[in-house]
Amino acid sequence: MIEFKDIGLVYPNGTEGLKNINVTINDGEFVVMVGLSGAGKSTFIRSINRLVTPTSGSLLIDDEDILSYRGSDLRKLRTKIGMIFQNYNLVKRSNVLKNVLAGRLGHTGTFRSIFNLYKKEDVGLAYESLKRVNIDEKLYNRADELSGGQQQRVSIARVLTQKPKYILADEPVASLDPPTSHQVMTYLKKINKEDNITTIVNLHFIDMAMEYADRIIGMRAGEVVFDGPVSEVSEKTFEEIYGRTIREDDLRGGANES
């Protein structure tokens, strides 16, 4: 369970990233965060694994306040939170298997990982994860030889290998075409259901949010302006979140093609 309690975050330059956030995310939920660019979606998501640190309030994950974590506490917290990025964030020169094994870093001793002495189970797990996203035949390809969609699947496999309790995805489909976007979202949703991994995804696209989310949280200017199950959401809700009418480019489209 993730509990934001009166969370505020002011960046060193004075920008208010988050204002008075009170949100509770239950285990197994698939939450989609929506909001205009600069609304604070990334700041929200990155607070959970402490890539940024809120400056006020308390943030409980599994009933422990994580804001005081440093050093090994912090690394232990991060091992149970997987993260997926817009730009896949793979090591382009390394092969797919090595990239996926990087998901085990937090569970592996420094010496073992530096000398590539991975346990057999870990390599097995990496391979299984690649199979789950159907990219196991690219095992020994260099990451930069893959297409964007394939790279994002590798990064999902990396997160699976981490065996996380939570998955954070910051605009995972923003660099992909519509069919590939749906494919990636489908994998995320499937993993959420099969492994009961709580998943929080930032999305720009309204139609995708509606299609995949159990619950939608809308942000504007650092504040949560909507929070509710997808059944309560209509076009009007989005217009309220965005503070303007809905446009063509708020939609990804292509839902039938995949």
């Binding site: 690394r75 991060r78 993260m83 990087a102 592996t108 420094t110 990982s113 990396r158």
Partner: peptide, 17 residues
């Protein structure tokens, strides 16, 4: 950043990333 986010320590991040 991805490796830091998955709980790797500084040496692991340097060697892998």
């Amino acid at each position: 950043e991805a490796m830091r986010a998955s709980g790797g320590n500084i040496l692991q991040v340097i060697f892998y990333g």
